[in-house]
Amino acid sequence: AAEEHPAEIWCDSLKLGNLQLVSKLKNPSDSCSVDVSSVWWEVTGCKESCIITACEFTVSLWKSLDNWQWRKVYTWHFTEIPVLQIVPLLDACNLVCVALGHLEIREIRLLFCSDDDECLKQSLVKSGNIKAVLGLRQKRLVCSNGTLHDHRVDLMTFSESGRSKEKQTLMSPEETILAFAEIQGMQDALLGTTLTSNIVIWNLKTGQLLKKMQIGNSYQASICHKAYSDMGLLFVVLSHPHGKEIESMGTPIFRLIAINPKTALSVDVRPYSLPQGHTGRFLDGEVKDNLAAAVLTSGTVAVWDLFLGHCTALLLPNSDGNWSFVKWSDTDSCLLAGQKNGSVFVYSY
């Protein structure tokens, strides 16, 4: 049998791979689940890593108990516009942002608790036609909004309590930004990808647009996930939600390219494809350090080790249904995988 179906045997050994199920959170809400993330929060006087889940009209914070059990401690409610995604502010404590909208983001709200009475609060941070948003370290948030003629890129910095914010405008590349990505280890640099296959770099301290670099037509509508600066080059992880299948290498879900920011020249380094026998396009995903995870249109989650260059784990749809969103926990090597019915599974990697 192994000789007849070598690809299937290999895929079987990949299922779960390095992932081990450690716990499950079940949101009893009737509404559709949309996102999950991890966040630092001070609960009963102690700062700890919590899980935050989003349904269409609620966002809930879960505190860890013993033995990988979770208890819901806070729920913020929204009435008019549904939640689209959680926007974590990476190293912030007691602060998290959410993006609300229908198909496109219409509002970004900051969620926090008041110092005095621990009442749940939310404040409107930005409204309008928001195209891309990313939470950064040092309680900063960057978002691009507006159309071609009134395009703006804003950087906001929040105070510890979330009550006030400083706002700075970054120079616009004068085209639609699809996504932002931090450059690991360079807190004053920010990278973005645009609708017309440009990669742009900003200096966040000065607001300057440092470079706009064309990366070719094969990268149409690429989403940047993470960048690393090394030896004078930028290594950028991209996904291609509209990418075409390349027969010789299967379906590349992520791709690593190297760019020389001084000359704007770039080369392909490596595609990250699905194992033989698996198909699907990129739906949702996240890159943390050397690990990339993606939910595919097939309902499967796939994990790649960017250094090893191949898929190291597959989570096939289970009896509850397809996977619909996936995130890495910020504090430990855990994968948070969620389904529309409100189930979030925590896997250690």
Partner: peptide, 23 residues
């Protein structure tokens, strides 16, 4: 990746681009 593919590489690219870009 080599200089033949990517052109001259600078370790201080961020500082250099900042000084060259419009304020």
């Amino acid at each position: 990746c080599s200089e033949s593919d990517l052109g001259p590489i600078s370790l201080n690219w961020f500082e250099e681009l900042t000084s060259e870009a419009p304020p």
